[in-house]
């Protein structure tokens, strides 16, 4: 464990808590893409199946359980409890365009052709693009609430910090995983345009609004 990874995990956790808290306190999931949340649920489920098969550390296991529980809770709030506030007219990204290629790529490019390994690989590929329905929704409505922007920023920072973690691990431990690194770069790049808007608008107290 190094500082980049720890900060990355904290940022990831913070993003999830910001989102859950926003939905719970406002009793509304307006502006949030349920499709992105479903994809993240699928990402955590397929990646953390190894909770049963391999033990890394108490920290690792606890975080996995927390991510799974928080993800399912978010999906429950969006699709059951506060279903009436879900803005599905604007959440129109076709997720099969992400899931099908992620499945295909996981079958083609993986470390080992075994069920748990393929599922892990699928989760890495899918995670890299899972935010697209949310970004699509923001671009469709042309704006995002500040709290939604904070959520997206924390989520983007998480993978950015993981990139620093991978550079550090390559240098300090001779450890690297090309699948995770390439997908992580793609994932971080997808947030770049948003980072720019966040820094130039939201941090200066303005609402995140896209030019018409």
């Amino acid at each position: 464990m190094n500082i980049f990874r720890l900060l990355g995990d904290i940022s990831h956790l913070l993003a999830i808590i910001i989102l859950l808290r926003k939905i719970w306190m406002s009793r509304s999931c307006a502006g949030i893409s349920g499709k992105s949340q479903l994809l993240f649920g699928l990402v955590y489920t397929t990646r953390y199946l190894d909770l049963i098969t391999s033990y890394i550390s108490l920290y690792n296991s606890v975080m996995k359980v927390v991510f799974l529980a928080a993800s399912y809770a978010t999906i429950y709030l969006m699709y059951v409890k506060f279903k009436a506030t879900y803005d599905h007219n604007h959440d129109t990204f076709r997720i099969e365009f992400l899931v099908v290629p992620a499945v295909a790529l996981a079958l083609l490019i993986n470390h080992d052709f075994q069920v748990v390994e393929i599922l892990w690989t699928f989760s890495i590929y899918l995670e890299s693009v899972a935010i697209l329905p949310q970004l699509f929704m923001v671009s469709k409505t042309g704006e995002a609430e500040s709290i939604t922007s904070h959520y997206l920023f924390a989520l983007g920072v998480y993978r950015g910090l993981y990139l620093l973690n991978w550079i550090y691990r390559f240098w300090a431990e001779d450890h690297y995983d090309l699948i995770a690194i390439v997908a992580g770069v793609v994932q971080t790049v997808l947030y770049c345009d948003f980072f720019y808007l966040y820094i130039t608008k939201v941090l200066r107290g303005k609402k995140l609004q896209l030019p018409a």
Partner: peptide
């Protein structure tokens, strides 16, 4: 297929 590193990250 390459050698799989241990998946010790989240």
């Amino acid at each position: 297929t390459t050698e799989a590193p241990e998946h010790d990250e989240l």
